[in-house]
Design a protein around this nucleic acid. Structure first.
Ligand SMILES: [Mn+2]
Ligand SMILES: [Mn+2]
Ligand SMILES: [Mn+2]
Ligand SMILES: [Mn+2]
Lengths: 225, 225
DNA sequence: TATCATTTTTAGATGAGTCTAAATTCTATT
DNA sequence: AATAGAATTTAGACTCATCTAAAAATGATA
């Protein structure tokens, strides 16, 4: 077993790696809210444990072993989020914080029981894929809502779960995973985006639209307004 | 918020205090599996934080503040144990270990939700009372099964939950909380105890019988064998 | 290509919790 | 009352994860 701190570092490295190829000391420092010097010293430790490879000044990369642990913790995290939402009615903007702690003390037995009770789910409440026990994960390729054009229809695939305010904000518009919506208009220069979800219209700032990931619904790329 | 370690010390002090009036350094050392010297240094810290009072060489006692936290953690622990047993089917000999970790990271909100889902229970799976939110607890006065005499009938009130082997052992005989049984015979000199539970007979060592707490059922103190 | 701002690492310190070994205090028994 | 044995505390060290301040390496740009 690894410490909570090590597990959080590995998880953070995985998440940054998914988007940026280069996982820098600074990016970890920001994501984990620790000083860059602290990251360096933890990197040294992870490297000694063969959980990451590290070229000085060049960032880190997970080893196979590191990725395995990382996905194990992410599985815990997302199963817990879903369990809290489904079984105990915890709102989707609060599940992350709870899971962030619980994920480190969940036994394999309980993990299996929750998985079974939930019917072996594949997505967490924010639409993120749940890695399987053996460390497989189906990352989906979706695009930010902000990249859509006027007239396009799309389905929400995933919403970033790190900011509860954001979740409440987009939740109020009904932008949950699997929600279908249509872009009515997009103002230029990162202006507001008007959308129609489930019959009602909403306006959404481009900031938020960066963090809502969608897949386009084909055969609907026509007319604007 | 206090550290996991502090919470575990407070809990241990509460539990020892319940039985022994004097909470010694050594008793804590044994219960928590740490060296006596470690206990002393932690006692110093707890004392500075006004969570315990301490006379050198004379043991510790919880302050009001210390007891409040202690009961808060015990509430977490027991609610979690019951939740795991009821909602997820975790066997009663495994819930303790899981709760020992989870208790420290449970939010008040989730505590309330679990409490509600369980219907505001008053006993954990081992029969121990669950403290209320405001720190009230109904300690029951029961006696060890080992103290019964031949012919007496009694009801299981509580079983010590610290040894999974013990729980499996007495569980096999049906000695769960609320189970009614009759003592058929007790061999002298801490000999084995023959009991009848739910129609079937079992023999139980006096060691185990020390850890099963019962309340006598009146009007049945007659004839032996 | 030399310079400089940015990034990363090193150096050294801190706090929490633990340990072992040694000193101290208590207490039960002579 | 003296003393031996047990319990407790002190002293000093260690690991883990963090910090700040200073040094070193990188790489963009003038
Ligand atoms: Mn975490
Ligand atoms: Mn999530
Ligand atoms: Mn605990
Ligand atoms: Mn219990």
């Amino acid at each position: 077993m690894y410490t909570e701190s090590i597990e959080d570092y590995l998880k953070a490295i995985y998440e940054i790696q998914k988007e940026h190829a280069k996982v820098s000391t600074n990016s970890l420092s920001e994501k984990l809210n620790v000083a860059p010097a602290s990251v360096t010293s933890m990197i040294k430790k992870l490297s000694e444990k063969k959980l990451v490879t590290h070229k000085r000044y060049q960032g880190v990369k997970l080893t196979k072993a590191g990725q395995k642990i990382s996905l194990e913790i992410i599985r815990h995290h997302r199963l817990i989020e879903l369990y809290l939402a489904e079984a105990l009615g915890v709102p989707w903007d609060q599940v992350h914080e709870e899971a962030e702690k619980w994920e480190h003390v969940l036994s394999e037995d309980l993990e299996d029981r929750m998985d079974a009770v939930l019917g072996y789910p594949t997505r967490d409440p924010h639409g993120a894929p749940i890695p399987s026990r053996d460390g497989t994960i189906a990352e989906l390729d979706s695009i930010p809502l902000a990249d859509l054009r006027s007239g396009q229809s799309a389905v929400v695939a995933e919403v970033s779960d790190h900011d509860p305010d954001l979740l409440r904000y987009v939740g109020k518009m009904g932008l949950y995973p699997k929600a279908k919506f249509k872009v009515l208009s997009i103002e230029p220069f990162n202006g507001p985006i008007k959308i129609k979800v489930d019959g009602s219209e909403h306006v959404l700032g481009s900031g938020a639209a960066q963090y809502v990931f969608v897949t386009e619904v084909k055969g609907s790329t026509t007319g604007a307004t």
